[in-house]
């Protein structure tokens, strides 16, 4: 046992560390999808593209200011706002037109995905572009080093999750959102402006995805195809966590993040992804409401 730890301790430590960072990142990306899913009962296939847009805007901000910190701060404000506007626009002129019908929405958001991706390819180009981290340092553990910014991302992500939680619990808009999520008709009868709530939820979902893009882009790069993987991962997290539940989303992100870390380190990454997708499918089949059911935030 002790010799196992001597040999594999560092591996386990890394798996947990990396898994925790992955979990926070995942939770943030998935949160927007979860809200949209929970309140509006629609699947936004373009969610990953909103994330990608956040990363791409971040690069433009970095390129414009030529300074990692100012570029980061600029992107932090502008990217969610811009993407939120795109989301409001899509809601007003597309989703409302198809009456939020689940299947139609899926097809329409696939269309949005194609449009966003190809416009980005036109404007931004095909290459992956690096964005410098606003704060950069390296932490040296006895066995290996680790990026300090990754830990900052985890921290900021936790902060954002907390912010959204407080917003949903304490603000009037949040109350309306929760009411709409619980029962659309009753909320409407009680004078909740459901149409506006839908638009805000969709904008909030898009803005959160963009925010995640801005935070994460320094630990990877911006490219026009980067949206698909986060989309699939968000699906996994949202399903396992249960629709519209912040707590569920976070718990699920940890389950996926840490198990992904451990399986990847000790076995194989492709195997980890395979098992994760299979696991999600089985959770849905056997416990369709997800681990945390339909509970409201």
């Amino acid at each position: 046992m002790i010799s196992w730890f001597n040999e594999n301790g560092p591996l386990l430590f890394l798996a947990l560390l990396d898994g925790t960072v992955t979990a926070f990142v995942l939770a943030l990306i998935a949160l927007g999808l979860s809200l949209v899913f929970g309140v509006m009962r629609i699947v936004n296939i373009a969610h990953g593209e909103f994330f990608m847009l956040g990363a791409v805007f971040s690069w433009f901000a970095f390129d414009l200011t030529n300074d990692p910190l100012w570029g980061f701060l600029l992107a932090l404000v502008v990217a969610p706002a811009l993407v939120g506007s795109i989301a409001i626009f899509s809601d007003r002129f597309i989703l409302r037109k198809v009456k939020y019908h689940p299947e139609s929405t899926i097809v329409a958001t696939i269309g949005v995905l194609y449009v966003i991706q190809s416009v980005t390819l036109m404007v931004f180009g095909p290459e992956a572009r690096a964005v410098e981290a606003p704060l950069y340092f390296r932490i040296q553990f006895p066995w290996f080093g680790y990026s300090g910014y990754k830990l900052i991302v985890a921290g900021m992500s936790a902060f954002c999750l907390l912010g959204v939680w407080v917003f949903m619990k304490r603000s009037k808009l949040g109350l309306y959102m929760r009411a709409t999520q619980q029962d659309f008709e009753i909320a409407k009868t009680y004078g909740v402006p459901t149409q506006k709530i839908y638009a805000s939820v969709f904008a909030l979902g898009g803005g959160l995805a963009a925010l995640a893009g801005v935070l994460i882009v320094p630990i990877r790069q911006a490219d026009h195809l980067m949206g698909l993987e986060p989309l699939l991962l968000s699906f996994i997290v949202v399903i396992i966590g249960g629709l519209g539940s912040i707590r569920g989303t976070i718990v699920a992100a940890f389950i996926i993040g840490i198990s992904d870390g451990i399986i990847s380190v000790f076995y194989e990454p492709t195997l980890a992804k395979m098992l994760a997708t299979l696991f999600v499918a089985m959770v849905l089949v056997l416990k369709p409401s997800g681990l945390y059911g339909e509970e409201v935030v």
Partner: peptide, 27 residues
């Protein structure tokens, strides 16, 4: 898109890391 977890598998007695990667994750 994240590679840290692979690097712990590099044995200590390695003299040379031979790497070839393609795609957007290379940086």
């Amino acid at each position: 898109s994240s590679f840290t977890r692979y690097f712990v598998k590099i044995p200590k007695n390695t003299d040379v890391i031979y790497h070839v990667m393609v795609g957007p994750g290379v940086l």
